[in-house]
Design a protein around this nucleic acid. Sequence first.
DNA 1: GTTTAACCGAGACGGTACGTCTCGTCTTTCG
DNA 2: CGAAAGACGAGACGTACCGTCTCGGTTAAAC
Lengths: 198, 198, 198, 198
Amino acid sequence: MNESAVRPRPGGRSARVREAVFDAAVAVLAEQGPAGFTVGEVARRAGVHETSIYRRWGTREGLAVEALLDRSRRELPIPDTGSLREDLAAYAAELIVFLRAPLGRALMHTLTMAADNPTVVAARDEFWAGRFELAGVMVERAVARGEVPEGTDSRSVLELLIAPLHFRMQATGEPLGIDLADHLADLVVRAFSLPLVD
Amino acid sequence: MNESAVRPRPGGRSARVREAVFDAAVAVLAEQGPAGFTVGEVARRAGVHETSIYRRWGTREGLAVEALLDRSRRELPIPDTGSLREDLAAYAAELIVFLRAPLGRALMHTLTMAADNPTVVAARDEFWAGRFELAGVMVERAVARGEVPEGTDSRSVLELLIAPLHFRMQATGEPLGIDLADHLADLVVRAFSLPLVD
Amino acid sequence: MNESAVRPRPGGRSARVREAVFDAAVAVLAEQGPAGFTVGEVARRAGVHETSIYRRWGTREGLAVEALLDRSRRELPIPDTGSLREDLAAYAAELIVFLRAPLGRALMHTLTMAADNPTVVAARDEFWAGRFELAGVMVERAVARGEVPEGTDSRSVLELLIAPLHFRMQATGEPLGIDLADHLADLVVRAFSLPLVD
Amino acid sequence: MNESAVRPRPGGRSARVREAVFDAAVAVLAEQGPAGFTVGEVARRAGVHETSIYRRWGTREGLAVEALLDRSRRELPIPDTGSLREDLAAYAAELIVFLRAPLGRALMHTLTMAADNPTVVAARDEFWAGRFELAGVMVERAVARGEVPEGTDSRSVLELLIAPLHFRMQATGEPLGIDLADHLADLVVRAFSLPLVD
DNA sequence: GTTTAACCGAGACGGTACGTCTCGTCTTTCG
DNA sequence: CGAAAGACGAGACGTACCGTCTCGGTTAAAC
């Protein structure tokens, strides 16, 4: 009762096309940013006809998002150092590395840019939900260890940690130094280490 | 000793065209977002010929940025309540209102989107420099009052406050509730109220 | 073993577009002259999108020349009356009719006007080469009949015959009376009927 | 009763502008042909504002024609060798030199091209009338000498002589060799030396 | 193993927008 | 007040890209 009979085999022509297109798409996005991301260019690099891309992915945004998410599937590993501060610092450092890489920049740019396309929005929401859920265990472990009060909202913690990184990259354009990781981890831990009064 | 002889009078044809175009540009951006922002559409609404826009602003991005910055010139007022927490909360609240409005969304989107255009980058940098410098006085006053340690970096404080707002709007797309203002002000104050150890 | 699978069928969409555009192009040229010849106008009349014209013909000149030559393909018939004088008179008469018609005027105007465009020049050269070669047989027959000396250059003969017609139309703008045909045939025959001395 | 008081003196500002514009216009036409002939370009070279040109000459064609005719005012000298054949050969040689020069090419191109502009047409007619009248004396002298029959139409003679030159330059684009002058003179003399029979 | 259905290559086209280039007019400013 | 400087209206040009369509050929799954 193998489902490989239902769907095309992973080595078939379709799969080959799919891979080639994704490779090309990510490469183009990485090299030229979302501006230079053209269906024609992707088709040329993938050695595939433009029409084939439109047939499968419908629109340019669809292709970009699917390719990027496919290639960003390997989530950031969740550190487990035994200390919230160290966990957050390590996680932030990983994120900085990701965001500085072309793939990361391209992913974020694309998710932001196409905020009116429903497909993209759906993918985006799913993406962030997954991220926050996975990373949430860092906070849960800290709660269990008593480092932060019971009831601490993991999403708030993570947002405070990673928002400045995205902010710099997307809004102000400032460089993302790796030392930001430690700095932010410190601040976030201090912000959440005591129970909120109100 | 009037300088009105040097520069075209503010009511001349040029000035009229300029205003009409800016109005139309901001309106289009607000109503349809950066995607629907078309030189032709702006020209139509402004009752001005397309060519005139290209002559003056060169490219679509140039127009968008100049129009938005011109209309965003009125900086956010800097609150002065006597308490850092209240100042930050008030400031964040203002920013939330700004970001939720079409003009704010459009401005941020445009600045982000055209990060490869040198003109836009220059305008962006100047924009943020101005914002941070103005808002910095809130922190300086807090330092003077002894609420936060000597040497506290005002930019860090502000970034930690406003980054989550931009992050939500641009990255995750979550709604920007007005109560976020208080919440974030709390966190930021806690993060900076004690001297950093390292 | 049908080759109809290899090349697009002559009734396919491409062929239809081609015909419609040529019809429209020639009509516009005939009605409004080269000045009013606009890609947009041709597209409108042909019921075809402007872009499609640019795709196929590249530039306005390219379209004009190709359309005109396609429609002028039916060469002028070469008379064979048994007398050089009558042949030349008949040929000149045909040419006068052609040049007086809008198509002829437009063709000549266009070939002259775009003398800097390499494509046009190539088409022009080919056009004249064909014309002179075909018409040359009139002279060759006359040589065979002994009406003109051995070694008479057919091109010179034809040039002397038709140059005044083109000259009137393009340079001085004088009307092209049909009686010119006889007159010129006379002169040309006299000019060539005796062997050149030098 | 000097008219120099009525018309601006030939050294005034108007005259200077006029000269500068004509110089620039002819230079542009000579260098870049009618295609590159732009009011803006002429204005730039002449150091004059575009508007000034439009004020004076109205349209581009007006300027081109006036400038060219002004500069072509020195008519071709009429040879007087005592022999029709030599006169015609000399005249044709002069014409060849004129047509090969940029100014000549430009003049003919412009006169041809703007055949719909009434002003240009008027100038053209006057130009050719003058040319034919002046050159006609060659034929009249030949008639007086008995080289050609009484009643020979000088215009026909000249047309047969010069039409092939214009034809080559404007229609076929063939090079205008100087030896054509002799060749054509021969042919024309032969064509007209005996009385026409009909 | 043959059929058949899905998919791909190739190419043109409609449509929209961009940015450039002229022409010729009109307004504003200055001598 | 009249010319100089400059912006503007008008419209064509040519380019780039998006997404659709048609036709024919290939390849893979299904019988």
